[in-house]
Amino acid sequence: MIITIAAVLAIGLLGFIIQHNQVLSYTIFVNSAPQKVIFYDADRHPVKTIYLIGDRRKKTATGVQGTLVVARKIHLNKNYRSLKAVRYVDSRQRGLLKIQSDPVMEFYYPSRNGKLRSNGRCKIVGHPEIKYFSWQGTSGRDN
């Protein structure tokens, strides 16, 4: 009985350690397919739509860093490498994905354990009306 209890506790502890150290971030999805991001005002009315197209990424001990392209529209067969890539830092410890574009965009995690949701709070420098976002994968075409 003691061995069974010890095994269950060990498995639970191992699961907690793996989940805590696993880097789950929005940017994992940016590098797999273009991501459509819709921004909303405080009343949840759509204000603006952009697309994020991953360029490079590197995992770190505290999150993910890399570059991506911010586009207003996406088109099949377009070479987005010609657009200027911007830096991003996806920090699970801070609960924040920060894109160093013009304007700077900040997406807040709903919790610091790295669990993803397809929507949440955000902030765009110079656009105080924008409060929320929704995040969706795309097929590579503007929908």
Rank of each mutant, 00 (worst) to 15 (best):
I38G: 02
Q19S: 14
A42G: 03
F39Y: 15
S91W: 00
I11F: 15
K123V: 05
H45S: 11
Q100C: 02
L116Q: 13
Y108A: 00
I28H: 06
E129K: 15
A7S: 07
T27E: 05
H127Q: 15
N21C: 06
K58R: 15
V70M: 09
I2H: 10
K36W: 03
D55S: 11
I18M: 02
C122P: 11
D102W: 04
K48Y: 11
I53C: 02
G15R: 13
V30A: 12
S111I: 00
I17V: 12
T49C: 10
G114Y: 10
A85P: 01
Q19F: 15
C122L: 10
V125E: 12
R72T: 09
R44M: 12
N143I: 14
Q100M: 08
E106T: 04
K115A: 11
A42W: 01
D43H: 04
H20P: 00
Q19Y: 15
K59T: 13
L68W: 08
V69W: 03
L97P: 01
V86S: 07
D102I: 03
G137Q: 00
I18R: 03
Y51S: 08
F16V: 04
L13Y: 15
L52M: 12
R72H: 06
G120F: 05
R56D: 08
Q19H: 15
R121D: 09
K123I: 03
G66T: 02
V30S: 08
G114Q: 13
G137F: 00
A61N: 07
I28A: 10
R117V: 15
S101R: 03
Q93L: 12
A33N: 14
S118F: 14
V104Q: 09
I50F: 06
G54D: 08
N113T: 15
V37F: 13
K36P: 01
A71Q: 06
F133D: 00
M105V: 07
F16S: 05
Y108I: 00
R112I: 01
L76A: 11
T60G: 10
R94I: 02
I130Y: 02
L76R: 12
N143R: 14
P110R: 07
Y51F: 15
R121P: 01
L68D: 05
H127F: 13
V125Y: 07
K131Q: 14
K58W: 06
T62G: 07
L76Y: 07
I74T: 08
I99P: 00
E129G: 06
I124M: 13
I38V: 15
S134K: 10
S82N: 12
G12W: 14
A7K: 12
S82R: 13
Q65W: 10
R44D: 11
M1W: 06
S91F: 00
Q136F: 13
V30C: 09
R44C: 02
F39R: 01
I3P: 00
Q136A: 10
D43Y: 01
R112F: 02
H127S: 14
I74E: 06
D41E: 10
V104T: 11
S134L: 04
L68G: 10
V37C: 11
S139W: 05
S32W: 14
T27Y: 00
S134C: 05
F39W: 05
N143Y: 09
T49F: 09
D142K: 11
R117I: 11
F39N: 01
D102P: 00
